[in-house]
Amino acid sequence: MSQTEGYNFAYLDEQTKRMIRRAILKGVAIPGYQVPFGGREMPLPHGWGTGGMQVTASVIGADDRLKVIDQGADDTTNAVSIRRFFARTAGVETTERTVEASLIQTRHRIPETPLSNDQIIIYQVPVSEPLRFIEPRETETRKMHALREYGAMQVKLYEDVARFGHIATSYDYPVLVNDRYMMSPSPIPKFDNPKMDRMPALQLFGAGFEKRIYAVPPYTSVKSLDFDDHPFEVQQWQESCAICGSDHSFLDEVITDDNGSKIYVCSDTDYCAGRVAASEEPQQ
């Protein structure tokens, strides 16, 4: 594929990419710290992945192979739209296979297949500030991060424990990176949080409207907040995937008829298809 005429490789001009790469490097140097950057308008709306796209555009090269997922799936409309955007503007190869991708841009999930050290995963982030819903002011949250003053979040989690007997945050579950900065993992289900800890792949986060970039370097500790007597735990299902039979992946609930009957299927479509293919192979 060739790239679109009239636009630079991967849409953004090289000056802008350099500015963004500098922000990424700073983010890698200070894991979990939100680096302000001169976010640009993208031809997609804010909240639809403009932050992730700017990061992807700044690190992508002609030899890269890009995978884009939304809710774990390659074929959701917004994932299709973003994948097409880079196929058009950068002319890069794209793939739906997790293992084949050198770059993975994602919204709301981490693939089930473990990532390797030669991969980069780029998260789309709507609200980069984990303390935003506790303290809406940027001037205040900046101070809280500087002083590592995260008591307010612990209190919020404690209030859940006091009311419900356990922590009632199910996605965008706050983490502490490298024992220093509190970070929003983006709205991934807390099911995915353990995958971030000491992940071999570089993790980059882009928030378009908030104009913030942050990063978790490979093999960095990412700890989900909890209490000694109420340890962090992830969702579990009693059901298995109706397509591949998986009993250990994140399952989406699908309503199948007017009576509200439902089945459960893997949210990670590539993982699910891979398991189906593997089970069919010996028979062929």
């Binding site: 809710q71 959701t76 917004n78 709301h108 996605y171 289900p189 989406d252 609930e253």
Partner: peptide, 10 residues
């Protein structure tokens, strides 16, 4: 946009 995963978690 789809929020299947977050909604499923909720």
């Amino acid at each position: 946009l789809p929020h299947y995963v977050d909604f499923q978690s909720e």
